[in-house]
Design a protein around this nucleic acid. Structure first.
Lengths: 279, 279
DNA sequence: GGCGGCGATACCGCACGGGTATCGACCCAG
DNA sequence: CTGGGTCGATACCCGTGCGGTATCGCCGCC
């Protein structure tokens, strides 16, 4: 299955074999065997190009999920065995820099519980929490609707908040008590920065490039950019950046999420602490 | 992994090997290899009994999910390949006898769509829809909250309804315009029937045994039982069974659900038809 | 203390997965 | 039109791994 996913992604047996660290002939045979076993034509080979069939597309989706599941099984078991203390640790993943105030309260409250298990923190980029939960690198996540997807996860809502515009201190708009989205998009000289996607490349378009929150805040402080972010980011602002509420920006909901089948005692305890802190 | 799940469920190498159709020594070695590969002690062998360790319990949960995922991948791919028409069929699973009016409307509406795919129906017992979706025997399900769990599934609400008490025609309570739960529990001579669990055995206690809806209705008509069911069951009632609203019974919500990663074109079309029909 | 149940170990054979060499089909350039 | 180059399939060989049978070691129990 790993083999098939590699070929389906590369659409090229040679490159796929290279990526898998094996030679090309065994790969061809493995795919052939898989097709015979499933009684399905997965790939259309036309001697110059390789294309996915309908059934191949189905298998690609399902196989990715299945591979994630076995990877998760391995990783979680390894971790469970490694923490020999009897208390299995739990890995909590969240976007770097998001909800840090809530996170701190959550960790404090949880550590104070009598039966608290060890919590390892894992910070990631935007939208990577889902895959992390699916393949077992993490057990619980903090997500932010509507940006992250909770598909396939169990969740508890922790808080909802409005958003604020981040502007250079002293900018004319900082005198206003509130703004609308239209006020801060297309400001001359204050574009929204571009973020790198999951593949590390920046989208085309105007605006400076920012790799993390520190760079973003510095760009704003220098008067080269503006941004819209959840209210709670105010606790992490520098003095030379000002926040002004944006009334019509979408409300941000912070939720704690976990894969439904892996609700271990450790996960359950952390979730309980989270809802208690947030209410 | 299949081997480990078998051993973990039987807690006995000999029986597990028998169930797997292999001899006992290879099974012992396979588990040993797995433990070495994961660097974890999964089972506590004390020469007279086998017990799960903490890590073993984790792996059991995760391995079940993983095995379901690969089984689902195999099944869905086979089905996608088998329907050679270009249009991949979709399997819809629901509890036998539940929401049959809505189901009929849904199937009609969907069949009338221009790009409708083939829909195969699969009827199952109570609470079996989740596993069916997980291991690929079905692609979409009709669930009924709060009885079924939607953990790990994407859903759309189709309708919510109250519940009614099913009583023999002519019973004194059928004169009332509405009832409360307490009115129908513990009625002398009219107990709630017992249903077989997933393992096929009946729970202990009073009340007659009923294996399906026809038996249930007959028991009610004969004045030997009563029952509480969603309102929509009225369309399937016999003349000798009367329905009376129960005000404080929990509201039943019918939802259409599917595994989030497998939202194929066929599934999406069926869901669209469902929400259109229900609104 | 001997017997029986149960998991682990020893040893053997086959079959499957991987590697190298080569073929056959096709595109393209000259 | 033909030769080189690319790419997947095939042929053949080898080693490892998995499964089977026989047996051991341990422990509870009659």
């Amino acid at each position: 299955m790993r083999y098939f996913v590699a070929v389906a992604e590369e659409l090229h047996f040679g490159r796929a074999a290279q990526r898998l660290g094996i030679a090309q002939p065994p790969l061809s045979r493995a795919i052939g065997r898989l097709e015979r076993r499933l009684q399905a034509t997965l790939l259309e080979r036309s001697s110059r190009a390789v294309a996915l069939t309908e059934a191949g597309a189905v298998l690609l989706r399902e196989a990715r999920a299945a591979l994630d599941a076995v990877e998760a099984a391995e990783r979680r078991t390894r971790r469970a065995a490694f923490t020999t203390t009897g208390q299995a640790g739990v890995v909590l993943v969240t976007k770097a820099g998001a909800s840090s105030d809530l996170l701190a309260k959550l960790l404090d409250a949880h550590a104070a519980e009598p039966d608290a298990v060890t919590v390892d923190l894992l910070l990631c980029g935007m939208g990577e929490q889902g895959p992390m939960l699916r393949d077992g690198r993490a057990d619980v996540a903090l997500l932010h609707l509507p940006f992250d997807s909770t598909a396939g996860l169990d969740t508890e809502v922790l808080r909802t908040e409005g958003q604020v515009a981040l502007l250079p201190a002293g900018h004319p708009l900082t005198g206003r008590s509130h703004l609308r989205t239209a006020d801060v998009t297309g400001l001359p000289g204050l574009p929204m920065p571009r973020w790198p996607g999951p593949d590390g490349t920046y989208p085309n378009g105007p605006g400076p490039q920012a790799r993390d929150h520190a760079q973003l805040l510095q760009l704003i402080a220098l008067g080269r950019a503006c941004w819209i972010a959840p209210e709670s980011c105010r606790t992490q602002l520098r003095e030379d950046v000002t926040a002004v509420p944006v009334l019509d920006a979408p409300t941000v909901t912070t939720v704690i999420a976990w894969p439904p089948h892996s609700r271990s005692r450790g996960v359950a305890g952390l979730v309980r602490a989270a809802v208690r802190v947030s209410s």
